[in-house]
Amino acid sequence: MRTLLIVDDEIGITDEVKSFFEEEGYQVFTADTAKEGIQIVSQVRPDVLLLDMKLPDMSGLNVLQIAKAISPATKVIVNTGYVDQAIIDEAAKMGRDVFLQKPFDLMVLWEEVDKLFRQTPGPPQS
């Protein structure tokens, strides 16, 4: 089964994503803090990580870095509601696979996640 981890402090978002993807047959994990998120990454090694750049206890960039270190196979989709070009560039350098600007649609998210699974393993997308 495809596993997906979403790390976002907005409960409204995690609830919707969880409900949706579970209906599509994914196993979904959620975390609303960076710490929790990292923990789950190391435990579960999810296929896809949906990561909010702005988290209460740690910078999303840090989480990205750690996640890529712990679980290199995990594909990472970063998202943010705030356009900070520096963070966006930094995330790209750190090897995120996809960048989404909030607000994004469930359909868009679903398509991006699916694309990641259709990809052959290779270097991260730019």
Partner: peptide
């Protein structure tokens, strides 16, 4: 604005998507 508005907007769009689905 970026943060305070985009989060609820995201949820909103997700709500709409789910309803349509």
């Amino acid at each position: 604005v970026g943060h305070e508005v985009n989060n609820p907007l995201t949820i909103l769009s997700m709500n709409v998507s789910r309803a349509i689905l």
